Every structure is written in C-alpha cells, then in structure tokens.
Amino acid sequence: MWVITVFANENTTMFEFDTEEEAREAFKKISGFTILTEVVYFNDPCFA
C-alpha cells in the first residue's frame, strides 16, 4: 500500500493507493507539502 500525506492550509489529508504507479501519478499533481510513503507489513510475502 502507498500513502500520500498532504499538508496544506493548516490541514492534513491522506490518500491511499494500491500500486506505486498510481501513487506517483497522483503525487505529481498534488500541491502543498507532500510525503509519499510505502506501507510494509511484517507478514508481507517479501519477508517470508
């Protein structure tokens, strides 16, 4: 899961995405201070 956190006009908004590609596309279009984060869970298959 990918999350974009936006800090703008004294508000904080978070958007969730399933893929990195769609998150990066949205990230380019959002104004304000933005943070793109990948959420990794300890039970994800990559850690098996």
Rank of each mutant, 00 (worst) to 15 (best):
M1S: 00
M1G: 02
M1P: 01
W2L: 08
W2N: 08
V3K: 06
V3Q: 10
V3F: 05
V3G: 06
I4L: 04
I4Q: 06
I4A: 01
I4H: 05
I4R: 02
I4N: 07
I4G: 03
T5H: 00
T5V: 12
T5Y: 02
F7G: 01
F7V: 09
N9D: 14
E10P: 02
N11E: 11
N11K: 10
T12Q: 12
T12F: 08
T12M: 14
T13N: 14
T13S: 15
M14G: 06
M14A: 12
M14L: 12
F15D: 10
F15N: 05
F15M: 13
E16N: 08
E16S: 11
F17E: 09
F17I: 01
F17H: 14
F17C: 11
F17P: 03
D18A: 01
D18I: 00
D18T: 10
T19L: 07
T19H: 14
T19C: 15
E20A: 13
E20L: 13
E21Y: 10
E22V: 11
E22G: 13
E22F: 05
E22P: 04
A23F: 09
R24A: 09
R24I: 03
E25L: 07
E25V: 15
A26H: 07
A26M: 10
A26K: 00
F27I: 03
F27P: 01
F27A: 02
F27Q: 01
K28F: 00
K28H: 03
K29H: 09
K29I: 14
K29L: 11
I30S: 14
S31R: 09
S31N: 10
S31M: 08
S31Y: 09
G32L: 02
G32C: 04
G32M: 00
G32I: 08
G32E: 01
T34G: 00
T34W: 02
T34D: 10
I35R: 12
I35M: 14
I35K: 05
I35D: 08
I35N: 13
L36P: 04
T37A: 15
E38C: 07
E38A: 09
V39D: 08
V39S: 05
V40H: 12
Y41N: 09
Y41A: 09
N43V: 10
N43C: 12
N43I: 03
D44C: 15
D44H: 11
P45Q: 06
P45C: 05
C46F: 13
F47R: 03
F47I: 09
F47H: 15
A48D: 14
A48P: 03
